[in-house]
């Protein structure tokens, strides 16, 4: 597809290597900065995962990228077009899947798709809608009202809707929230197939397993982008040391309360029948947990921190900074 291709500024958007390139974006609502000094680059053909707790500014950032919100500070381009002044151009090339289902509930599947086809000026909206219905596996449901579809089908329809005009960039805002595991898996297979065709995908999510399916991830908390890179890079950069403790059910809860707040222990998180105990300073952590390691009813193992451990740690650190 599009290999290295040193593009001049404001070149046609389908050359060039970097699809999203924004610097120092800040967005305030009622004087409160919801996104602060955010810079990011996304290369063509990558699946870029956007992670962060609720209210951290993911949706706001995505909206700034597609021209639905105007940044208060900062500049940038999306598909080579200025996100402040050329939003009309951006909109023709971007497929945006909103966090909340936002197709017309009182239109049928087919009517929704045809509507979108007409707005984007497809030559034959009816045929395009028919093809999309087939591709999405929605055959037999095309007459059903969109509002009556179940969560998984709604999500498929929404994905079909935003890919219908064959955009260059997909912005997917928590596309798999509330969707069952099988549908999620199919959804991700779809995303990878699209990316292999050269489509760039920015996807926000809460699910760690989904983060691991992205080429690159970025973590945002309290409006600030804290870390970005490949999953391996993000885990390595966290400098976390993690121990996994296994024990009987009754014991773990008490242990968790004991360990929380001990010097060197920055984080204690239950995972089923085990407990993840992590610290930023390996030496301090060893010292902190030493008395417990001798207990016979506990089984301690040193482990690689999970992405979730890293994110929870990042968040609590950001929280400390924020206060």
């Amino acid at each position: 597809m599009s290999e290295v291709n040193a593009a001049p500024k404001n070149a046609r958007p389908n050359v060039g290597d970097v699809v999203i390139d924004v610097q120092h974006l800040t967005k305030k609502f009622d004087g409160r900065a919801v996104v602060r000094d955010l810079s990011m680059q996304v290369k063509r053909g990558t699946i870029y995962g956007f992670l962060g707790p609720n209210g951290s500014g993911k949706t706001t950032t995505i909206r700034m990228l597609c021209g639905l919100l105007t940044p208060d500070e900062g500049t940038g381009t999306c598909l080579g077009y200025d996100i402040r002044t050329q939003t009309d151009k951006i909109k023709t090339q971007v497929g945006y899947m909103t966090q909340r289902f936002s197709l017309y509930q009182d239109l049928s599947v087919r009517e929704n798709l045809e509507f979108i086809g007409r707005i984007y000026g497809l030559e034959n909206p009816k045929a395009a809608a028919r093809a999309a219905i087939k591709r999405l596996g929605l055959s037999g449901r095309e007459q059903q009202l969109a509002g009556e579809l179940s969560g998984g089908w709604k999500q498929r329809l929404a994905l079909g809707a935003c890919t219908l005009p064959s955009p260059q960039l997909l912005l997917l805002d928590e596309p798999t929230a509330g969707v069952d595991p099988k549908a999620r898996r199919e959804f991700w297979n779809e995303i990878h197939a699209l990316a292999a065709d050269g489509l760039t995908v920015l996807v926000s999510t809460h699910y760690m397993d989904e983060a691991e399916r992205c080429h690159e991830i970025a973590y945002i908390a309290y409006g600030e982008l804290l870390v970005h890179g490949t999953v391996e890079h993000v885990i390595a950069a966290s400098h976390l040391t993690t121990y996994v403790v296994s024990a009987g059910a009754g014991v773990l809860n008490a242990l968790s309360q004991d360990l929380t707040g001990k010097p060197g222990v920055d984080m204690v998180a239950p995972f089923g029948t085990s407990l993840h105990v992590s610290g930023r300073d390996a030496v301090a952590l060893e010292a902190g947990i030493a008395p417990y390691r001798r207990r016979a009813d506990l089984d301690w193992k040193k482990a690689e921190p999970s992405l979730e451990d890293v994110f929870i740690d990042l968040m609590s650190r950001a929280q400390d900074n924020f206060k």
Partner: peptide, 13 residues
Amino acid sequence: ERGTMENLLAMPI
């Protein structure tokens, strides 16, 4: 109110 405006505004119209 139905949330469809966000979708409409994201389209080239």
